[in-house]
């Protein structure tokens, strides 16, 4: 039997992904469809599998209108993601730019900044966060307890922005109170931005220097366009990371319902949630893609 070169190559392609495809079918696609079907059923476990009768959209109605917490949790998770994502992005880009510069102790600083990647994803994060909060040691107050002053208030007074407007002050306070969460959730993003920064051609930097660009101009004209494609990737990663975090309240609620054997309700909630995640990612992709600069090769 003889096959053309192209045809043979494409057969090899199937060969390479065959194992993954079978796995994805069995462990991913079929469960995905099943869970979608569960959400329309009054489902309960029985020997040999799940049994249930069709109830149509009743479970969705339950999730949105009957469940006392779900809608509230949903809104709060959406809100948190909405304001945290841009902050994490700006922060991680800023840190990546700094870590990309040459200075003494850079290796150490890098090692420290990637530490959260190792620790933050697990239950450890919850415990240390909770413990420190309960002893008044978390977030901005950790500095205060160390130096026994209201450092943030003094800083704002020093800058002359204390009490300019309640809105501004509140925003600053929220940010500073959450700095712990932001720093600890930015590890992977910093890593990604750093990789993008290192791909900026040296010639661009040289040209900018000869033309006399300030660091500020350099950032807007060279750095930002070059990392813009990574901004999209980081955006999506941050959103997904925040949505799929097993610690957030919606995920917690779904988990609780599963514990109570209410699989239909749990599936309906999970699917509503998933639809929102998809929508959010879609919107972000469309918006950010307009600003992304792709180098033409």
């Amino acid at each position: 039997m003889k096959m053309g070169y192209e045809k043979r190559k494409s057969m090899y392609g199937y060969g390479f992904i065959a194992l993954w495809f079978v796995g994805a079918l069995v462990f991913f696609l079929i469960p995905l469809v099943q869970s979608f079907l569960y959400s329309f059923q009054d489902i309960r476990p029985d020997t040999g599998g799940m049994v249930g009768g069709w109830v149509g959209l009743e479970k969705y109605n339950y999730a949105l209108n009957v469940d006392p917490n779900y809608r509230q949790y949903l809104v709060s998770v959406l809100q948190t993601t909405l304001w945290k994502t841009p902050l994490i992005l700006v922060f991680s880009l800023f840190v990546a730019v700094i870590l990309n510069q040459k200075f003494k102790g850079r290796t150490f600083a890098r090692a420290v900044f990637f530490l959260p990647v190792i620790i933050a994803t697990g239950p450890v994060f919850n415990i240390i966060n909770g413990n420190m909060a309960s002893t008044g040691n978390s977030d901005a107050s950790q500095f205060s307890t160390m130096f026994s002053t209201d450092l943030l208030g003094e800083l704002m007074e020093f800058l002359g922005i204390y009490g300019i407007s309640d809105g501004v002050q509140q925003t600053i306070e929220t940010i500073s109170e959450n700095i712990f969460g932001i720093v600890w959730n930015a590890g992977i993003q910093i890593l990604m931005f750093l990789a993008a920064l290192q791909n900026i051609p040296a010639s661009a930097k040289e040209a900018a220097q000869i033309e006399g660009a300030t660091a500020w101009e350099y950032f807007w004209k060279i750095t930002l366009p070059n990392v813009s494609s990574m901004i999209l990737a980081c955006f999506i990663f941050t959103i997904i990371d925040s949505f799929t975090d097993p610690n957030n309240s919606v995920m917690g609620r779904i988990g609780d319902l599963q514990m109570d054997w209410k699989y239909g309700e749990a599936s309906a909630m999970a699917w509503i949630y998933f639809a929102i995640v998809l929508l959010a990612v879609g919107i972000v992709t469309v918006i950010v893609n307009k600003f992304v600069y792709y180098e033409v090769d």
């Binding site: 069995v26 462990f27 991913f28 079929i30 469960p31 995905l32 099943q34 869970s35 569960y38 476990p45 599998g49 799940m50 997904i240 949505f243 799929t244 097993p246 995920m251 779904i254 988990g255 599963q258 699989y263 749990a266 599936s267 999970a270 699917w271 949630y273 998933f274 995640v277 998809l278 990612v281």
Partner: peptide
């Protein structure tokens, strides 16, 4: 994109 929670029950049954 899919959160693990969405497919965890069917996986358990599997």
């Amino acid at each position: 994109l899919v959160p693990t929670q969405v497919i965890s029950i069917p996986q358990y049954m599997l």
